[in-house]
């Protein structure tokens, strides 16, 4: 078996390396950033990995589900995570990327009744559910009840249509929507890693832009 390097770099070593890569000004903003990710499937798990890699300071990860074999074709989990809550499985991986960012988890189902309580301290909300009713519920409730929050959502990333159909749209002042807006699972398309990851990349980059104070799509 290959030898695994267990020497965990120090916090300042990681910080300096990120500054070297991203510049001090950018890294300062990212390190001060906090983001809530609702839904840890193909979108949420990949978005969380991206944001952790660039050193976003605090993440709240929300999902009620456990890792299933059918998730592995697109979600950022491994065989070893099967049966674990997605919150825990993802947190374990993120800790391997950067052990010094703050990661909170909530193993709960989000509904209209708990959105304000759970999301109110986050100015950037990432909607990454799979069910269109849940997506609509979260977007509507955040826009109605949390006027200081911006929400970055995903809709339309199923199948293997052209990558270039997936775009970031600033649909409303505080609402960014990533995807092709059309290809959903209800139309009989499957969900596969490449296109889901493209959409996750759009969401992660829009969140990065917002953290850096850029509001254009």
């Amino acid at each position: 078996m290959e030898q695994i390097n267990n020497n965990v770099p120090s916090q300042s070593e990681i910080k300096e390396t990120l500054i070297e890569r991203h510049t001090k000004e950018v890294q300062q903003r990212l390190s001060n950033g906090k983001v809530v990710i609702a839904g840890l499937g193909g979108l949420g798990s990949n978005i969380a990995v991206s944001l952790t890699r660039i050193g976003v300071g605090k993440l709240l990860l929300i999902d009620f589900d456990v890792v299933d074999l059918s998730n592995i074709n697109r979600q950022n989990y491994y065989i070893q995570h099967l049966g674990l809550p997605k919150t825990e499985a993802l947190k374990r991986q993120l800790t391997q990327i950067n052990p010094y960012i703050q990661i909170e988890t909530k193993n709960i189902r989000i509904d209209e009744g708990n959105v304000v309580e759970v999301f109110q301290e986050y100015e950037i909300v990432c909607e990454a559910f799979d069910n269109p009713k849940s997506k609509a519920m979260l977007v509507n409730t955040v826009l109605e009840k949390l006027p200081n929050s911006k929400i970055v959502s995903g809709s339309g990333m199923a199948g293997y249509e052209s990558s270039n159909e997936i775009k970031t749209h600033r649909t409303m002042k505080n609402f960014y929507l990533c995807g092709d807006l059309e290809n959903g699972v209800e139309a009989g398309f499957c969900l596969m890693a490449p296109r889901v990851q493209i959409c996750a990349g759009h969401q992660a980059n829009m969140i990065t832009r917002l953290l850096l104070g850029i509001e254009e799509e």
Binding site: S155, M157, A158, G184, V196
Partner: peptide, 10 residues
């Protein structure tokens, strides 16, 4: 009006 219709998948 801007109407956003969500589709499934994530």
């Amino acid at each position: 009006l801007e109407i956003v219709q969500f589709v499934g998948g994530g």
